[in-house]
Amino acid sequence: MNIFVERGGITRRQFFKGTGIIAATAVFAGILGKIGIDIFKASDKYIEKRIAGLYTLDERMTIRKSHENPEIIQIYKEFLSPGEVKPLTEKSHHLLHTKYGSEIPELIKELEAHRHHAA
């Protein structure tokens, strides 16, 4: 019986096509990797832009220090520390300060007692 088998050896054209496709694949993967790295680098640009946005707003403000805010001075003088600007008064401790963790139940009791007292 006749058995037909392909001969070994390849032509120049076949060699170049074979190596060519391997090289092309490597280049393709490299390009994809480059695109990936570019996207990675650009991926948090929005954070910088938002940060720059806030700093620009800050620069455009006429008053740039908290203690110079007229309404802050007003709330201390009229409400939190009548007559003066004095943080950490009893009133500001009650309204503006809190406690953490295991001290919270005690704080809630205090605040509720205050509520009943006020009512």
Binding site: I51, Y55, M61, R64, K65, S66, E68, E71
Partner: peptide, 19 residues
Amino acid sequence: DRLIGSSTGAATIFGVTGG
């Protein structure tokens, strides 16, 4: 609105790390 609505640049940067 006024009363508890005016702010300063110091308050604006609260939104940024380090602000």
